[in-house]
Write a protein that binds this DNA or RNA. Structure first.
Lengths: 129, 129
DNA sequence: ATGACTGTATGCATACGATAATACACGGAA
DNA sequence: TTCCGTGTATTATCGTATGCATACAGTCAT
C-alpha cells in the first residue's frame, strides 16, 4: 500500500492527495474493512512528508467515517459505515453526485463513463445499501 | 460555460478547481481551439470569487500552454491544445470511480444511487465527452 | 477623444498548508 | 516494570490562497 502512494506537484494540498488515495484504495477493495492502514509515521517517511501532514490526512479520513483511529494501536478501515436517515441520505447522494460530475469534468472525463464504472465496481464488490 | 463551473469545499484550492475545469472543458471539446474564454471578471463574479483568484487560474492555464491571454482583449483557447491520450483517460475514469465508491460507502450511501444521480445531472447539464 | 471593456498590478488583512522540533500519553509485549 | 511503537499535542516559522479595495494600462467601437 505504501509503495503505491504518490504525491504530485499539482497545487493540490498534500494531505488531500493522501486522503483521496486512501479513499480510492478503500473503495477499490485494496484495503478491506478491518484492514490496518500504514502508521502515520510510515506514511510521513515514505512520502518524505511531515508527520502532521499525514495526521491531517488521517483525521479527515476518520471524520468522513472511512477509518477509525485507535490511539497507540493504529488505524483501521471501518467495518460498518454509519447509517443515516433517508432525508439526509438523499441530500448526501445529491451532493456527492454533483461533486463527482465536477471532478469528472475537471479531469476531462465523461461523467457517464465514471457512473458506469461506479456501478460495475459496486456490483463486483457486492456493496450494498 | 460559466454556468457549468462549480466550486466545492474539498480542500482543493479554488484556483486549481477553476483551472482543472477549464482544462477539462478544453480537453473534452466543450471549448474549441480559438474559442474565447469568459473574462476573468465574469468568472470571479459568477463564482463569487476574487479577481486575483480567477487570474491565478488563468495564469496557470497559460503556463500549461492551454490558453493565450491577450491584454485588454481576452483569453482564448490555443490552436493546438495539449492532448490527453485515451489510456490515461481510462485510468483516470477507473481511479475516480473507485474514489466515488469509497466516498459513498464511507458516507453510508449506495454507490448505485450516486451513479444514477451522476447520470441525471450530467444529462441535465448536457456535458459531453 | 471618449468611454467601456479587458487584463495587470498593489497593499493590506486573514486563514490555511507544510515543515520542524519536541514532548507527552497510551497499549502491549518482553 | 520497562521499553517500544503508536497516536496526540504544542509552538514556531514560512509560504501560499483568498478576499477586498483600488488603481493603472492597453484595445476597440463610437
Amino acid at each position: 500500500m505504501l509503495s503505491t502512494l504518490r504525491i504530485e506537484d499539482n497545487g493540490v494540498p498534500i494531505y488531500v492527495q493522501i486522503r483521496d488515495q486512501f479513499l480510492g484504495a478503500i473503495g477499490s477493495g485494496l484495503l478491506r474493512p478491518g484492514a490496518r492502514l500504514p502508521t502515520m509515521r510510515e506514511v510521513a517517511v515514505a512520502l518524505k512528508v511531515d508527520l502532521n501532514t499525514a495526521r491531517h490526512a488521517y483525521d479527515e479520513l476518520e471524520q468522513t467515517g472511512a477509518i477509525v483511529i485507535v490511539r497507540a494501536r493504529g488505524t483501521y478501515v471501518v467495518d460498518k459505515p454509519p447509517p443515516l436517515d433517508s432525508a439526509r441520505q438523499a441530500k448526501k447522494v445529491e451532493g456527492l453526485a454533483h461533486q463527482v460530475v465536477a471532478l469528472a469534468v475537471a479531469a476531462g472525463l465523461d461523467p457517464g463513463d465514471v457512473a458506469q464504472q461506479v456501478i460495475r465496481i459496486s456490483k463486483r464488490q457486492g456493496v450494498k445499501k
